[in-house]
Simulated assay, not measured.
Amino acid sequence: MNTFLTSLIDRLNFIVRILIGLGLLSMVALISLQVTVRFILPKLGMPAGLPWTEEAARYLMVWVIFLGGAIAARHGLLIAVTALIEALPAAPSRLLRRAALYLLAGIFLAMAWYGWQWTLFGADEVSPALMLSKFWLYLAMPVGCALAAANTLVLALQNGEAREATAA
């Protein structure tokens, strides 16, 4: 079961990494377009404006941050204070690390639930430039946090398997 779950999450993370890359590439293209339109075209005597590019880049950045955080959770790369874990002997250290990962997964699940509530609450709002429902912006939090919870659980399960393998 653990290997199936790990494989499933890793495949999902591969797709998410591609989406993150496309999001970053799109942000660069949008901001480059905005700089060109705002600063270069007026110098050529062609004043113009594209306010939607800033908003689109900002919304993409929110999605990239939440999805990137979820990927970081899979590899244990989120910021952490590990002084106590490192100071303990091996067995209690592994136990405390695993407990911390399960607690973190629970926090991510709570954030996903509250994020979903916020998404539903703000679904009637419309973005000023894109005229897009804010549902799509707010959806980044529950999706990113749910994926972070799944990645953290897989990391905790892998830590448990590593402990069992060294004990045998």
Results as ranks from 00 to 15, higher is better:
5 L>Q: 09
131 M>H: 15
14 F>I: 04
76 G>M: 07
145 C>I: 04
42 P>V: 05
126 V>N: 09
13 N>M: 04
89 P>F: 06
25 L>P: 07
96 L>C: 05
104 L>K: 06
66 F>I: 01
12 L>Q: 05
136 W>Q: 08
4 F>S: 11
153 L>A: 07
33 L>K: 05
107 I>A: 10
102 Y>F: 12
2 N>K: 09
66 F>Q: 02
103 L>Y: 10
147 L>N: 01
44 L>E: 06
127 S>R: 10
166 T>I: 09
44 L>P: 04
167 A>D: 14
8 L>A: 15
2 N>C: 08
151 N>F: 06
106 G>E: 08
51 P>T: 02
69 G>Q: 04
89 P>H: 13
137 L>D: 02
55 E>D: 08
82 T>N: 12
159 N>C: 06
30 L>H: 02
106 G>R: 10
33 L>D: 07
107 I>M: 14
48 A>V: 03
82 T>M: 12
7 S>T: 15
2 N>L: 14
111 M>L: 15
140 A>I: 03
28 V>D: 00
23 G>C: 00
48 A>P: 13
87 A>N: 08
107 I>V: 15
143 V>T: 15
3 T>P: 01
133 S>A: 13
17 R>G: 05
51 P>E: 05
17 R>I: 03
89 P>M: 05
95 L>I: 10
127 S>Q: 12
22 L>I: 14
116 W>Q: 01
4 F>D: 12
38 R>E: 06
107 I>G: 03
115 G>I: 00
82 T>E: 05
57 A>S: 15
101 L>R: 04
110 A>R: 08
168 A>T: 10
37 V>M: 03
28 V>F: 15
34 Q>I: 04
7 S>I: 02
4 F>P: 06
66 F>W: 06
15 I>W: 11
128 P>G: 10
97 R>L: 06
16 V>P: 00
90 A>P: 07
43 K>T: 08
5 L>T: 07
118 W>T: 07
20 I>R: 00
45 G>L: 09
13 N>K: 00
61 M>E: 11
106 G>C: 12
13 N>V: 02
105 A>K: 01
95 L>K: 02
91 A>N: 09
85 I>E: 13
99 A>Y: 15
148 A>P: 03
112 A>I: 11
14 F>E: 10
6 T>R: 14
138 Y>C: 09
52 W>K: 08
125 E>K: 14
155 L>C: 04
62 V>F: 12
76 G>P: 05
79 I>T: 14
65 I>G: 00
33 L>N: 11
100 A>V: 11
137 L>E: 03
5 L>N: 13
60 L>A: 05
17 R>F: 06
143 V>M: 13
1 M>A: 07
15 I>K: 06
64 V>H: 00
75 H>W: 12
72 A>F: 04
46 M>I: 12
139 L>D: 00
139 L>H: 02
103 L>P: 00
142 P>G: 02
3 T>Q: 13
139 L>C: 11
148 A>W: 00
131 M>F: 15
77 L>W: 13
62 V>S: 12
24 L>A: 12
60 L>F: 07
22 L>C: 14
7 S>W: 07
101 L>F: 10
29 A>V: 15
